[in-house]
Simulated assay, not measured.
Amino acid sequence: MTGRAQSWVAHLRQGGTTPWLAWRGDMSADPPTGVVPGAQQLELLRRINLARESSAGPRGGHDGLSTQLADRVLAAPAAGRGKADLPLMGLETPTFGAQPVDPATVSAHELLRVASVLLADDLVALGADPVRTTWARPWRLRYRLVGDPVLVAHWREDLASRGRPEGGPRPFLVAVGRPLDELLAHTWTQRCFETGSTPWTEWLRFWRERDQLPARADLPASARRWGARRPFVRIVTDHDRLPRQVGVRRLPLVRVPGADQAELARRIAAVVGLRVPAHERPALMRTLQHRIPDTGTAPAVVPAREREWVAASAARMTREISRAGYAVVGDLAALAPRTEPPAATGPGVADQQVLDLAIRMVVDPGWRAADRRVERSVER
């Protein structure tokens, strides 16, 4: 049986796509010797081979680059709390630990544990994209941007590249607001593309159980944290009027990453944190945010069971802003959660969607090209 397993490994290394239970043990190939890889690695490699076939058609041969990728997949560990690889069904049954499985039944969650390691290693090897800046205009308006993390992160980069970085003496604090359900989703999304986070629903539950808002979603708390005095604070809910608050004529539109992109980034960030010092991870993850392929998936959505708490939190934040007397550019009513949320209010994006994106990135390395930098330009 070990010989049959080793011949199947050789089949997969050569680009094969036959499932394990359908493999009849063709021993004509020169099978590798040694320990048989785990079921997660083997099934992921088979699915990568399927994706390569569907994207480029059947191949007449198997090049060295493909073999190198296959070896990387088979040697990659499965990220996550030191869990052992799953043994292959049909081999000797271990007396303890994980039981053998049919690779075809391995969940997308388990396959993502291996795929995230591959992508994290690719990202670390790629390195962080340089930040585009230019000399600061001495006549620029002094400001500091807080609020919606996805929009603020993109606009900070854009303004710095135009010679208008934030900061300076006595800056205006400009807090970018939006409906609180979206603001929470954007806060979690941007955290995934910086230092990583817990899964979306767990993250929301953490804050709901404490009846608190995360720091970057709490606009009045941001003003207090920066010590901004009332005349120097602007709460902006009308984004069409935001450019004037930072001293420019226009700001670029920003597309919020989809839920599958954020979830994959969250998993990759956990591995990147083991590969590089903590201070290097945010720059690498921002590079991923610029380069990750767009799938058209909608951003994360607050589940229906959390919407009552979100509405109460939005009302509380609105009262705090009114009592503090901060200037409002727009309407504070815009901080209330949307009354008609999208239909997708389930627990989050499916693991299979995230796995499809991960395999796409493994198969097509175009996102690692030197001049590859995806501009997000759909939604503010």
Rank of each mutant, 00 (worst) to 15 (best):
A269N: 02
T295P: 02
L173C: 08
E308I: 12
L159P: 09
A311D: 13
R216P: 08
V117P: 02
R275W: 01
P365L: 01
T18G: 02
G147Y: 03
R224L: 12
P169Q: 07
T93G: 07
E157L: 11
R376G: 12
H279L: 06
P32F: 05
R81E: 15
T318E: 11
P231R: 09
R164W: 12
L355M: 05
R162E: 05
C192H: 06
D122L: 03
Q99T: 15
R59V: 03
E182A: 12
Q99W: 14
D121I: 11
S197N: 15
L151S: 11
R234W: 00
V124S: 09
L274G: 15
I268T: 03
D121H: 15
R81Q: 15
V106W: 04
R307Y: 11
C192A: 11
S313T: 01
H62Q: 07
R46Q: 05
V117K: 00
W367C: 01
W226K: 05
A311G: 12
V362H: 02
G346N: 10
A315R: 11
S222A: 13
G25N: 08
Q40D: 10
F232H: 10
L173A: 11
L44W: 08
D63Y: 06
R59Y: 00
A76C: 06
A217C: 01
W20L: 01
G82S: 07
I292A: 10
Y143K: 05
A265G: 05
L274R: 15
E280S: 09
T201G: 00
A221R: 13
G127A: 09
V146H: 11
W203S: 00
R132V: 13
F232A: 12
E375R: 12
A350R: 14
E306W: 13
S313N: 03
V276N: 07
H290N: 08
P277H: 13
T297H: 11
G147S: 01
T345D: 14
T105K: 10
A185H: 06
E340C: 08
L242E: 09
H186W: 15
R224D: 10
R113P: 01
R205E: 12
D218N: 08
L65I: 08
A56W: 13
R225A: 14
L65C: 06
R266D: 03
P365N: 02
P303R: 06
H11F: 04
V152L: 07
D148Q: 11
G163M: 04
R307F: 12
T105W: 12
E320D: 13
Q245Y: 12
A333P: 04
A270K: 10
V363S: 03
T198F: 13
R266Q: 00
L219A: 02
V73P: 03
W226M: 05
P37T: 09
A160L: 07
A98K: 14
L65K: 09
T133N: 07
A76G: 04
G64W: 06
G64Q: 00
G82L: 08
R275N: 05
C192T: 10
S28P: 01
S7A: 14
H239Q: 08
R275T: 02
L274W: 15
T339P: 05
R178D: 04
V276K: 09
R360A: 13
V256F: 13
H11L: 02
A153I: 01
Q261A: 10
R338H: 10
N49E: 02
E92A: 15
L112Q: 03
E263I: 04
R281W: 04
L183I: 06
H62M: 07
P77E: 00
D294W: 09
L112A: 07
T18S: 06
L50C: 08
V362K: 00
V131Q: 11
Q261S: 09
L183R: 06
